[in-house]
Design a binder for these strands. Structure first.
Length: 274
DNA sequence: CACACAACCTGTCAGC
DNA sequence: TGCTGACAGGTTGTGT
């Protein structure tokens, strides 16, 4: 469930062992993930020093020496696992493995293979088709109720769908949209363009709070999510509505409901969210 | 253009 | 125990 907090947790874990190090070995064990890997993928990365690890939306950006950026998306099931020493137990879904001059190895494992990787010149990063058009970072000060109001103006999509739209705001996924709408008391089926500014004044801080708490907790451990150091995240114990169909609302004790919107489960409290 | 929905791929779990 | 269907964190492409 890599949403922003899980991607950020992964980025931080990787940064500890990669920044400043040289990638001495890399193997792509198949030619494609969701899309084909770029030409000379492994060859282009091998031997370069890692300058910095950054994140934009749900993408991890590894800046390599020589003005090259390695773009990584974890998709639905992608994970990065770090270990000391080259792995000797490589699994069927361990698609990319790379190691540093200090002997750390990172395995990109992705059963469903919805993940993606690409390489782009640093000077062309912002224009890359995966990143162009992505909305504001929700944790930036520039993401305000006023900005969100403008982005939602005239939208007839329900709030649930609007917040999942990465061009409206970056990094939210199914879980944190549900959680943020609950915290702000906004019904997920409310049409985005009709939500009152006063509600958005509650929603923006709610988004920032739920993401900040989740990052602080090290991401969520829903299903099999593992941080880069192998520790399970533990934010899932704090979900208030997600995956809690039929349970009592933490605020009013009414039953949490589950509906399907644009093909995905939405959880909400029909009494607290209007 | 905006929006809804299917598709991509594999694993897991509930129910029979 | 084995089979089937529903469902899972995301994004893109197609159709209306």
């Amino acid at each position: 469930m890599p949403e922003l907090p899980e991607v950020e947790t992964t980025r931080r874990g990787l940064a500890l062992k990669l920044e400043g190090r040289r990638i001495t070995r890399i193997e792509a064990r198949r030619p494609d993930l969701r899309f084909p890997l770029p030409k000379n993928f492994a060859k282009s990365i091998q031997g370069r020093r890692v300058e910095a690890l950054e994140r934009r939306a749900k993408y991890i950006l590894i800046r390599l020496e020589g003005d090259l950026v390695w773009i990584i998306h974890l998709g639905m099931s992608g994970r990065m696992v770090m270990r000391q020493g080259w792995p000797n137990d490589i699994g069927a879904h361990d698609h990319v493995i790379f190691g540093t001059d200090e002997g750390w190895a990172v395995t990109f494992n992705d059963a469903r293979r919805f993940g993606m990787m690409d390489l782009v010149a640093g000077s062309k990063l912002a224009a890359h088709k995966l990143l162009a058009g992505i909305g504001p970072e929700p944790l930036d000060d520039a993401f305000t109720a006023k900005v969100l109001l403008e982005a939602l103006k005239g939208k007839k999509a329900p709030m649930k769908a609007a917040l999942l739209d990465q061009t409206v705001v970056a990094g939210l996924g199914n879980i944190y949209v549900c959680e943020a709408l609950f915290r702000a008391g906004i019904h997920p089926e409310k049409l985005a363009g009709q939500v009152k500014p006063a509600k958005l004044e509650l929603l923006v801080p709610a988004i920032k709070a739920v993401l900040t708490e989740a990052v602080k907790a090290g991401g969520s451990s829903l299903r099999d999510y593992v941080q880069s150091d192998g520790e399970l995240g533990y934010f899932q114990t704090r979900f208030r509505v997600y995956d809690r169909e039929g349970e009592a609302c933490v605020t009013c004790k009414a039953g949490v409901r589950r509906i399907v919107q644009s093909g995905r489960s939405t959880f909400y409290c029909g009494r607290c969210q209007k």
